[in-house]
Design a protein around this nucleic acid. Structure first.
Lengths: 235, 235
DNA sequence: TTGGATTGTCACTATATTGTCACTCTGTCA
DNA sequence: TGACAGAGTGACAATATAGTGACAATCCAA
């Protein structure tokens, strides 16, 4: 199964890159981790996408046809200083250490880059930007409070222990509240695409969440069953 | 990025840096966030300013004409151990970055650096120094006291010897207390982006910290494992 | 109301993750 | 150059937890 890492849960990344091979590689790299990817082959498309989708992070190649990558980076940072921008650049470009400061980029990776490093840097940038929005850290429903960075759940003050998997499932429910989620969808998004346990597994994990988080697990208020369809979380 | 952050509110930062381009860039970066900036182009000017203005933080370039940056760093830390010093250094200057901590520096950023990272590190350093005025440089948990400037750890008075690496890991845990840290995150932040040992390595270092700092290493109170997710430090 | 399908629930087992140790490798210092 | 310390690796044991299957309860449609 997958590494047990918490998935990105619908974070979207805008990739501004003209080389289709790199585009493709980045697409594979990030979708495998659960991120959504939007591609823009040049500056003007990048700008357009940026405005249309408000991505959670931007990966920007400095060497672009048309609008200069540097110009673009400044524009992004002016329009939305909170959105992290990670720059891809050839070594020679970054040799000038001042450049990055002026651009306002959050981080950079020099080509040829290690996919793992890029992934790590983008994730770190997203984490940093998330941390400055503290309101997203804690979510509550009923007498339950969920603290994501601490991976901790409390019921009227008392800590409830959840396993990593239960936590991941809970997060998915919270991220998709009010929507009916089929077992398939849950298996794909929480368990991962290359892993197919029986659907009983899902019921089992739901059961555990109910036992741990519902006032009356037999009459669930939040983790509702939608007979013949799946489950639905309501606040 | 830090729209949610509290603004610097008249905090002043002393920048000791001879390259005027970096000076200018730092000026823009930090004034935009509401900090006051004072520039010193060399060591003696830096020392003078430091005494005259007692800054809230210092950004120090290790490569300076005149007085050695390292000397200067020690002087700062001796004169006023509570004032955070963040060092700028070229990668080549220090083979082992951990050594910088021995200078007494609170943090370091290698050139060419990402501006957001520098900003984040300086802010973090200031926050830490603000948190507990009287004993900024000492953090305690259980029967353990960690003295950062001295790079020394004591357990009920007795000195415990930590390796530079163990110390760095400990520092990262303390800086991110209560948060669940994945092995990946630990590897990236403590070991560095371009070095990928197996994840077993992490477990091993944790084991050593537990053996050296936990009352009962078999039942760790502070360095907790979060099964399927990583580790978490709690006070 | 009844019967098949779906879901709730439990105990058991298989599996993945982590703890721990001993060994190797590398660089440092005398 | 040899001893030494620290770091990384791999093997194995110890745990935690996820998955399975059986059976009971419930739902829905005819």
């Amino acid at each position: 199964m997958n590494s047990g890492e918490t998935k990105a849960a619908s974070k979207t990344i805008l990739v501004v890159e003209d080389d289709p091979r790199i585009q493709k590689a980045l697409y594979r790299l990030f979708t495998a981790e659960g991120y959504g990817i939007s591609n823009a082959p040049d500056g003007s498309a990048g700008l357009e996408s940026f405005r249309a989708m408000t991505p959670d992070a931007v990966i920007l190649d400095l060497m672009l046809p048309g609008v200069s990558g540097r110009e673009l980076c400044r524009t992004f940072k002016t329009a939305s200083p909170d959105t992290p921008v990670v720059v891809l650049s050839a070594v020679a470009e970054v040799a000038d250490k001042v450049l990055l400061l002026e651009l306002g980029a959050d981080d950079y990776v020099t080509k040829p880059f290690s996919p793992r490093e890029l992934l790590a840097r983008v994730q770190a940038a997203i984490r940093r930007s998330d941390r400055s929005r503290p309101d997203t850290h804690v979510v509550s429903f009923g007498d339950v409070a969920v603290d994501f960075p601490k991976m901790e759940v409390k019921r009227s003050g008392a800590v409830v222990t959840l396993t990593a998997h239960e936590f991941k499932l809970l997060k998915f429910f919270l991220d998709n509240a009010e929507r009916v989620l089929s077992r398939e969808e849950l298996l794909n998004d929480v368990w991962g695409y290359n892993f197919y346990p029986s659907t009983r597994t899902v019921d089992n994990q739901i059961l555990k969440l109910r036992q741990k988080l519902e006032v009356d697990p037999t009459n669930p208020k939040h983790f509702r069953t939608v007979h013949g369809a799946g489950y639905k979380f309501v606040f």
